[in-house]
Amino acid sequence: MAEGTIRYWAAAKSAAGVAEEPYDADTLADALAGARTRHPGDLVRVLQRSSFLVDGNPVGTRDHETVRLAEGGTVEVLPPFAGG
């Protein structure tokens, strides 16, 4: 399993109650499942609407099971936001 960091932004940060935390997972799906387990409630809802960057690359519509995580990598959780 790879170890890295999940960073939460805006509403995701508020729902998780932390700005970042470690992951220990092989895929984005596994990392997000861990986040849902650690932070049941609002974060689960926010994750359903969020976009993700893995090591700076947009995940887009790829199946989260197919997105491999690297050792020392970073997952950015970007909820929808207004403005610009």
Rank of each mutant, 00 (worst) to 15 (best):
6 I>C: 02
6 I>V: 15
8 Y>Q: 04
9 W>M: 11
10 A>S: 13
10 A>K: 15
11 A>Y: 05
11 A>W: 01
12 A>P: 00
12 A>C: 06
12 A>T: 03
13 K>S: 14
13 K>V: 06
14 S>V: 14
17 G>E: 05
17 G>K: 00
17 G>F: 01
17 G>R: 03
18 V>M: 08
21 E>D: 12
21 E>K: 04
21 E>A: 07
21 E>L: 08
22 P>K: 01
22 P>W: 08
23 Y>M: 06
23 Y>D: 04
25 A>W: 01
25 A>C: 03
26 D>Q: 11
26 D>K: 10
26 D>W: 02
27 T>Y: 09
27 T>Q: 02
27 T>F: 06
28 L>Y: 00
30 D>Q: 15
31 A>V: 06
32 L>Q: 11
32 L>I: 10
34 G>I: 05
35 A>E: 04
37 T>P: 06
37 T>M: 09
37 T>H: 13
37 T>K: 15
37 T>L: 12
38 R>K: 11
40 P>T: 06
40 P>N: 12
42 D>L: 14
42 D>G: 12
43 L>M: 12
43 L>C: 13
45 R>M: 12
45 R>F: 13
46 V>C: 04
46 V>Q: 01
46 V>H: 02
46 V>G: 05
46 V>R: 00
47 L>R: 00
48 Q>R: 14
48 Q>G: 12
48 Q>E: 15
49 R>V: 04
49 R>C: 05
50 S>V: 02
50 S>L: 05
51 S>T: 12
52 F>P: 01
53 L>D: 14
55 D>L: 01
55 D>P: 05
55 D>N: 15
55 D>K: 02
56 G>R: 00
57 N>V: 12
58 P>F: 14
59 V>H: 01
59 V>I: 09
60 G>P: 07
60 G>A: 10
60 G>M: 09
60 G>V: 12
61 T>K: 13
62 R>E: 15
62 R>Q: 15
63 D>V: 12
64 H>P: 04
66 T>L: 11
66 T>W: 07
67 V>H: 00
68 R>Y: 03
69 L>P: 02
70 A>R: 03
70 A>M: 07
